[in-house]
Amino acid sequence: MEPLSNKRKVIEQKPLNFLERAYLPAIIQGLAITMKHFFRKPVTISYPEEKREFSENFRGMHSLKRDEDGRERCTACGLCALSCPAEAITMIAAERQLGEENLYREEKYAAVYEINMLRCIFCGLCEEACPKEAIYLDGDIVPADYLRKDFIYGKDKLVEAPLNQ
């Protein structure tokens, strides 16, 4: 075949000279290299104790945000569920009763909000779809668990902690 670029190099195999055929110098060289690594600092990050810093646009576990008064932002419009390509989000909306104004910002709120973390692909489309800036994927890595049902996260795990506590 004609060379497409001029990067082709012709490799010629020279017969090994005596030192190369004797193996030993090469082996000693190799041993020296590994010995150098022996005294090097390990690059391991022992995970649960030490954590690597996440990048700025890392998408982890979801959190449902509160506004500056500590009220839940979500209004259960369902846009996030609609935009979700993995169909991981479900919710049940409810009307805000009197006396709950300090809990929910809008008149309609999500009584049940569930994300199946096994389905979620952490694409961040829910984040983009949300008109109320209520959902962000700014959390940690989703922890492992034993049962499938334990991966369906409800509001207890998703909603941010109240402000004044």
Binding site: H37, F38, R40, K41, P42, V43, T44, S46
Partner: peptide
């Protein structure tokens, strides 16, 4: 442990 040190790791700990 030695394998780990040669490979810049920590090994069983």
């Amino acid at each position: 442990k030695i394998a780990a040190f040669f490979q810049d790791r920590i090994g069983p700990n």
